[in-house]
């Protein structure tokens, strides 16, 4: 799985791993930027029915390799996903 997937202008990259990849049948795709972080899960649920309950509710999110909090409700000063960002859905891990 490469993290060098370059998004086209005005877009960000989203990476899917493990159960997130199984559910979407994709390892990555592009979405239009900017996007407030609180809109990410609703947008993904729109696109992939049942994604939230099955995968997202137990997943974390990174933006450019850093973990970010997902607010339950939109806020004035919330984190924005920008053009060119690399977002990843991180389901519960299982190394070893």
């Amino acid at each position: 799985m490469s993290s060098s997937t370059k998004a086209p202008a005005g877009h960000f990259t989203i990476l899917y791993f493990a159960s997130a990849s199984s559910h979407t049948s994709k390892s990555s795709e592009f979405f239009a930027a900017p996007l407030p972080i609180s809109k990410l899960f609703p947008k993904l649920e729109d696109q992939y029915q049942g994604f939230k309950a099955k995968v997202l509710d137990s997943s974390l999110v990174t933006v450019n390799l850093e973990y970010v909090d997902i607010p339950d409700t939109p806020a004035e000063d919330e984190f924005m996903i920008k053009e060119g960002d690399e977002v990843a859905i991180i389901p519960p891990v299982s190394s070893g």
């Binding site: 791993f17 493990a18 159960s19 199984s22 137990s58 991180i90 389901p91 519960p92 891990v93 299982s94 190394s95 070893g96």
Partner: peptide, 22 residues
Amino acid sequence: QKVEVWKKEEFGGEEGGVWRAN
């Protein structure tokens, strides 16, 4: 607990693989 690696256990047969959570 923390490293971003995911394990799929393959049981063989018709059941298919299962993503494990630690």
